[in-house]
């Protein structure tokens, strides 16, 4: 099938942006990433975008595709149900070139919630035991690949870049509800801050955007309840 692909371009040398349009013959089962690579190979080698695993586990290629944040390697052309494909960088981040945005502040935000196990007790000789039920409580949020799709789909983040954002909450959830962790006193302050949890207005954009199908709005709800009870 034939598709018309519009790709956002930003040239840091001239500080100018535009959309470039390409008409391509594609297989409906092609990933959007395949189409972009074909354009880069056949039409314009200067288009800049990130990619690595190409099957939705590394999180390199989050971008806005036809208005929704997606991993380009996880969306097939046929899934878009459109012959027009419009690709832009994820929003609310500084664009460095074309579809490449500055991810450093995003990672710094994740690090603010102390995203590592703060053990309740010193490690025993063998493993710490954890029941299947306790492990299941935070299973969903262990799936996060830190692609940034959720945070950059969130209107609260767009209006206030200081907002910690859903990705960091997902990471916080993964530790706060881990029965082995005892570090919540260090995390609650960050979550209960003016730029913390309460800027989430349950818009569900993050949940829609997540390529790992994490129930992010629910996870944030869990954290809100936890914070109110443990303040």
């Amino acid at each position: 099938m034939q598709v018309t692909v519009e790709i956002f371009r930003y040239d840091p040398d001239t500080d100018k942006s535009r959309f470039d349009t390409f008409v391509k013959e594609v297989d409906p089962k092609d990933r959007v990433l395949d189409v972009m690579m074909a354009i880069k190979d056949e039409d314009d080698g200067t288009i800049a975008f990130r990619k690595s695993c190409a099957h939705g586990v590394c999180g390199s290629d989050a971008m806005e595709i036809n208005g929704l944040n997606r991993l380009a390697c996880q969306v097939l052309v046929q899934d878009l149900k459109s012959k027009r494909i419009r690709i832009q960088p994820i929003r609310g981040m500084k664009v460095l070139r074309d579809l490449v945005v500055d991810m450093e502040p995003f990672f710094a935000g994740l690090e603010s919630v102390k995203p590592f196990l703060i053990p309740k007790e010193p490690a025993p000789a063998a493993e710490r035991y954890q029941s299947i039920a306790d492990r299941a409580i935070f299973d969903d949020t262990t799936k996060c690949i830190m692609c940034g799709s959720c945070t950059t789909s969130c209107p609260s983040f767009w209006t206030n870049g200081a907002y910690v954002g859903p990705a960091a909450f997902v990471k916080a959830h993964r530790f706060i509800f881990d029965s082995r962790d005892g570090g919540n006193e260090f995390r609650l302050g960050i979550l209960d801050d003016k730029d913390g949890l309460w800027r989430c207005h349950s818009i569900f954009n993050c949940t829609d955007a997540c390529p790992r199908e994490i129930h992010i709005t629910k996870a944030i709800g869990d954290l809100k309840r936890y914070t109110v009870v443990h303040r």
């Binding site: 590592f116 196990l117 053990p119 490690a123 000789a125 063998a126 493993e127 710490r128 035991y129 954890q130 029941s131 299947i132 492990r135 935070f138 299973d139 262990t142 993964r174 530790f175 881990d178 082995r180 962790d181």
Partner: peptide, 19 residues
Amino acid sequence: ILELEHFGLPFSRTPDGKI
């Protein structure tokens, strides 16, 4: 592997809570 568990790796568990 035990060290990874101590670092916080969320292994799947047996019914008695082991890796």
